[in-house]
Amino acid sequence: MELLNQVTQFVISGLATGSIYALIGLSFAIIFNSTGIINFAQGEFVMLGGVLTIFSLNVLHLPLLAAILVAVAVTTVIGLVFERLAIRPLKNATPLMLIIITIGASILIRGLVMLLWGKDTQALPAFSGTDPISVAGATLLPQHLWIFGVTVLVIIGCRLFFNHTISGKAMRACSFNRRAANLVGISVGRMVLFSFVISAAVGALAGVIIAPLTMTAYDVGVMLGLKGFCAAIMGGMGSGLGTVLGGLILGTLESLGAGLISSGYKDAIAFFILLLILFIRPQGLFKKGETERV
């Protein structure tokens, strides 16, 4: 009985952490899907969301909702500026150069935040208290429900946007074939810009809602970004359910690994299974195989 209780707790905790990874994974996938760029500065958008909210709350003394809006808006603007200054000037960029540029941007953003707000970790108060909620013998915090809720909203939002709006469809077209998209009159440049804007906003939102749980500092982005990247890869880099499942599986694996096998090796266990998945299904768990074009 005790073991069962524990396992329930492991799974619930894992799902809660997993939904954080899922949300960050989604913001990765949004950029990747319309541009083919893996944005290594994605974790920094998440960090900015948290740090800016705390700044608006504590220094500007805004109410929570306004602080969140300011944080998301500012991060979105940063995403826009980043695309304009660092991505757009590149002509004929190889994916590798884009990786290095986004790594450079992540170092830059981290450095600026460190100089502006220091190196201390900060905590954001929970949105609706910290009284634990019991679920089947395990406990959750109200903040976890916020995370679940926002993740669901973001998935629905993405679905609607990418499948039912002109801009969304245009962005998908760019990811399939840039040249063809250009030929039918889609402004590829604008779609790339769009994708950075949306992705920065989603990343910042993720950063805001997880900050009460995980706390935040200038350097939290690296780890969160890495986990989000894993989630997105597991899901086959799609901006839908696949990535979310990828995140949830990653979170649960870590939690079960820490609880049942060894807490020191939990990341190794998660990565090992990730490798196995990649070896068996090289195109990700939830994506049909594609034939390579020559």
Partner: peptide, 17 residues
Amino acid sequence: DIIVYGLLLITMTIYLP
């Protein structure tokens, strides 16, 4: 220095592809 480092990475990749 960390800021200069980040800037260098970006500008060098853009201007010295």
